[in-house]
Design a protein around this nucleic acid. Structure first.
Lengths: 223, 223
DNA sequence: ACAATAGTGTCTTTAAGACATTATTCA
DNA sequence: TGAATAATGTCTTAAAGACACTATTGT
């Protein structure tokens, strides 16, 4: 059996956050070929002498290229083929990271996800898959909570869901559902309303990286 | 920049089906090292000169090692690390395939998923991920339809869901839900009941590989 | 006091679970 | 005709959407 040329193995990280204009993705400008000067997702080789797994490589990229730590990260999908990288047949394990905007480093470049086109490699498609994954998860889990700073108010979280889903959600239903799942509660009512006006809102935190799901279909008898 | 030793890149396919004792996974006995004679998932190298993508490699494996064609297949997850394969640092893109039992080749070896332990490499874990994926999809999609022969009756499909989920589902609710989604209908009432007794059941088919989802949560306003 | 935002109450609708009832088929 | 299975009907319950209404805060 001959093994042929082994593929290049890399990771790419779709880092999503909420900012001006809704969902945004973090990009970096490439400083060397291929695609020199083009925008791309932060990524890099899987270093077999240093990274225990591809996920470790993704964390390394997250720290070194985006200087972001402690973020929610999950494996997204693996992309492969002879043409996606001009250096040869490549396999990229893509990860999805969600982070509150405030925890990104100062000069970080983010663009609205709809404007993330013309990126290097097949990164347009990877971004699209990441966004779709988040949108799907938003309908049945607390995943969007990873996009807001902790602690947060229910209206904060509500706004995050609406930004992710791109549609209105009834505020009363939203509140009822979130409360019924029991996210942690705080006693400080601190936070004043949206633009500094109106009644203050109760603050909440999500227990340690926990993502809750809520599905309303048979099989599992609810949560 | 030094690239170090590039990882080995393989695919592994979790082929699930329904048979004696419920959900079963197809295994092969390894005929060469490493793990010679041990049971393993069908898999193989991604051939950079032959496979357009890792998914093509998975299809090739499906055809050559399991002689199964036209099955539902989707990417599951990628597993990586220095220890999972004694030949060195490896990356395996795992796929999940669902197939009716009758479409497997004659002597195919399948075992109940709970008994798929002690497999080569980290295949125990890959099987577990595949099963979990299917179980999660069963609660919000028609994925289990890929496990039954076409055409099928609603009771057939009902039994498949129960086998996958491992719990009872109310037959009336199940029927109502499936009907309301509109899976294709046939005029032949042919199929006699379960063990040849009782009223015949209406036959249905699922339109071309289509998987419907049904979620009952806010965001998307139903289907 | 008033505007703005947070939070509650209530009504309607949809669909799931439970389970009784009717329909069809084979031996 | 009777047993077995398929299919329908009905009632209850849970939760989402809509939206009116109350509560609290800053100016």
């Amino acid at each position: 059996m001959d093994h042929r040329q082994s593929p290049i193995v890399t990771v790419d990280v779709v880092i999503l956050t909420l900012g001006e204009g809704g969902l945004r993705v973090l990009l970096t400008e490439r400083d060397k070929p291929p695609f020199e000067n083009a925008l791309a997702l932060p990524g890099g080789y899987v270093r077999t002498d240093e990274d225990g797994t591809a996920e470790d490589a993704a964390h390394r990229v997250l720290l070194t290229k985006a200087r972001a730590r402690g973020v929610h990260i999950e494996q997204l999908m693996t992309f492969s083929g002879p043409d996606r990288d001009p250096r040869g047949y490549s396999v990229s394990v893509a990860y999805l990271a969600l982070i509150p905007h405030s925890r990104l480093p100062e000069g970080a470049l983010t663009v609205p996800v709809e404007e993330a086109v013309g990126l290097a490699f097949d990164h347009d498609r990877i971004v699209a898959e990441g966004v779709e994954r988040l949108r799907r998860k938003a309908v049945y889990s607390t995943a969007p909570a990873a996009l807001v700073e902790q602690p947060f108010t229910i209206p904060d979280l509500h706004a995050a869901y609406e930004a992710v889903l791109g549609s209105r959600i009834d505020a009363a239903s939203f509140r009822r559902k979130m409360i019924s799942l029991s996210a942690l509660e705080e006693s400080d009512e601190k936070r004043p309303g949206g633009r500094g006006k109106g009644r203050s809102a109760q603050l909440f935190t999500l227990p340690e990286e926990e993502v809750r799901t809520f599905d309303r279909t048979f099989g599992e008898p609810g949560t």
